[in-house]
Structure formats: structure tokens, C-alpha cells
Write a protein that binds this DNA or RNA. Structure first.
Lengths: 196, 196
DNA sequence: GCAAATTAATGATTTATTCAAG
DNA sequence: CTTGAATAAATCATTAATTTGC
């Protein structure tokens, strides 16, 4: 690890300003514009002109990329619908399972549901294979009666509940056992974050 | 439709335990930690793992948010005192705009007034930024010739309604000009305005 | 005092960003 | 550069708390 980061770390204010400028349509600031913006932003924290330049480059690129992906996906969805109007499609599965990531808690029966869904989809692209593998991997090292897995997607979900009965041992414990919880000491990242 | 509550309502004991864990530095409990905590907490009342997960997410986020706001306010206050010793401060604006427990109806010219005030305050705290965002968002889908803005309490939320020809003063005004108000300072505004 | 109206707080969800591995 | 995993931010929704008008 390098002792000092050489990389620009935008403050919330700086980010807000940049985003606002972008939102209003600024895409390719010229030299003097960059200078001006940099001057303003430096009020909120150390910053160089190149950072402003890079920020707009990156932001624009990623914006476009996102848009392209979205359109491609929609198009693909439509095509699939036309071809196999009543079968679960890979992209449907993708939407269902893999849109974006969040920590969620799912019970075993939800897992089974997913397997069925994958099977029913009749699809076996690489993406689905990977997903199946992931599910299996996760499921394998989970307890039988309740599981905690990482999952994705929009759908409403089954949550592991009633942990009580499954842990009779805890019933008689008192608060002292809390001492046993492995308390993570704040990481550097956390400290930075709270120090902002 | 379930008539009963679906949302976890922490008991005082549960809350105390969670807060204590947080105080000791626990921020992102992993799966097994969550399971453990849930088991313990279920001794004091019904609770699901996801609630523990969410609690830490929310608590951490709101903790940071509070801290950020405080720091930003202090910093901003200082800056204002140094730069514009006799200009309206954020708290003055807050008083002006955010009187408790009133809802008032404002016409377009009032909106303009607010923009000017915000502008004049030279302020750029989160609260003001949020307000500008709100105003803009609402204003965007308003009819061109009339508007009605309703403001609620501390949180500076504004809701815009269409109320028919009640405010003749607004009839000929046009919201587009709102977009042109400078975000932070005249120079910035000029830049992006030309860039659009 | 009380009940309706309204605000504030916070649980729950979704979306965006960061970060690192391949 | 792409992708998956982790986290943070933004937002939605419900409940608790507060205020207000009678």
C-alpha cells in the first residue's frame, strides 16, 4: 500500500457540483471551463484540473455504456418474447435473479424455486450456467434448515425467519454472551468514511 | 392484504443490544453474525435476520449523514462568516423557509424569490441543495403559466399542485428561467449555460 | 383533553457507486 | 475493460410523536 494516495477523492460537494453540471448538459468542458470549475471545486478540497477532465470523460462514457446496455437488453427481451412467447427466457431469469446486487436473505424453498425456474427456462447459456453454479456453491455450505445466501433481483422474497426455534441453545443465554460476538474493529475505510 | 403490521418494531431491549454492538464498532455484520444476533434478540421479541441487517445499514448510514450535515454546516457557517459577513446565513434561510407546522401556498414569484434568496445566501449545504433539487424537480412538470407550491415543515419538502386560475400573478411567468439560475456562483452558471 | 392533521423517525427496498479479481 | 461482490446512497412506506383546533 502506498502511504499516500495520489488519487483524487471527490468530496460530496465537489461531486454534487459536477453531477449538476453534467445533468444540465455539460459534457466536454474546454480548457478555460475546466480551469474555472477546478477553481470552484478547490474551494471544497484539493483538486487538479485533470481530475475534472477525467471525471467528465469517465462519467460520459459510463453513462453511454449504461444506456447501451439498457437498450440492448430491452431489445433482446422483445425478441425473445416474440420467439418464445410463453417460455421463461434467459433474460427473464436474468431480470429475476441478477439485475443488481443486494444482500438478501433467502430460505431454502426460494432456492428450489430458482432451480425450477432455471430448468423451466430451458436455457443454458453461459450466464445461466454460472448462476446455477453460484447457487449450488452457496447452498452447499449452508445449514440445512435455514440458509443465508446472496441473491439478486427485483422479486419479493422469502426471508429466513423465526430463528428462535433453531437455536434453542440461545434461549437460556443472557446478554453476557454478547461478549462473544466478534466485533470487528473499524477498518480504515470506515474511519475515513466517518471522518468525512 | 394483511391488516396487521408487517414491519418490525424493536423492543427497548433489542434496541439497546443493537446500539451497544454498534457502539463497540460493529458495522457490517456478516451472515453468521447476523444469525447469532438475531437468535439473541429473538429472546426479547419476534425478529428476523433481515431486520438486523437493515438496522445496521440504516443506522450506519444515518449516523454518517448526521455527522456530514453537522460538519458541513459548521464549515459553511465559518466560510460564510469569513467571506460574506453580512449575508443571509443558512439558518436565516431555514427560519425563513421552514417554519414549523405550517403549510403555505406560494406562487411563481415566490419561487423566484426563494431562488434569489438561496443564491444570495451563497450557501451550498446539503439542505439547500436538496431544496433546490426539489424545487427544480417539481417545477419541471408544472404547467407553464401557474403553479402552487406547498411547503411542509422542517424537511423543506415542497409539493406542487395545479389549482386552476387562482393566481393571476403567475399567469405569464414561465418556469424555464428557473433552470438558468446559477448553481453556485455566477461564473459557474455562465459556463454551463453556454455549454448546454 | 381529545381527535384529526401533520411532522419526524425509522424500517424496508431499490438504485448507484466503489472496489478488486480475472 | 468487464464483471461480480460489497457497500453506500436514495427512496419508499409505515409507525411514533407532535401539534392544532375544537
Amino acid at each position: 500500500m502506498s502511504p499516500r494516495s495520489t488519487r483524487w477523492c471527490p468530496t460530496p460537494e465537489q461531486l454534487m457540483i459536477l453531477q449538476e453540471l453534467y445533468r444540465r448538459g455539460l459534457r466536454n468542458p474546454n480548457a478555460s471551463q475546466i480551469q474555472n470549475i477546478t477553481a470552484h471545486l478547490s474551494f471544497y478540497g484539493k483538486i487538479q484540473g485533470k481530475s475534472v477532465f477525467y471525471w467528465f470523460q469517465n462519467h460520459k462514457a459510463r453513462d453511454r455504456q449504461k444506456l447501451r446496455k439498457k437498450l440492448a437488453k430491452e431489445l433482446h427481451q422483445q425478441q425473445l418474447l416474440q420467439q418464445h412467447p410463453h417460455q421463461p427466457t434467459p433474460s427473464a431469469f436474468h431480470q429475476y435473479f441478477n439485475c443488481y446486487s443486494t444482500h438478501r436473505f433467502y430460505a431454502q424453498d426460494k432456492l428450489d424455486e430458482w432451480y425450477k425456474f432455471i430448468q423451466g427456462s430451458g436455457a443454458c447459456g453461459e450466464a445461466l450456467e454460472g448462476m446455477v453454479k453460484q447457487i449450488r456453491r452457496r447452498a452447499d455450505d449452508l445449514p440445512k434448515d435455514q440458509c443465508l445466501i446472496r441473491s439478486y433481483g427485483h422479486d419479493s422474497m422469502m426471508i429466513v425467519d423465526d430463528v428462535g426455534p433453531t437455536f434453542p441453545c440461545c434461549r437460556n443465554r443472557n446478554l453476557e454472551t454478547l461478549e462473544l460476538f466478534p466485533l470487528r474493529s473499524p477498518t480504515l475505510k470506515d474511519q475515513e468514511a466517518t471522518a468525512v
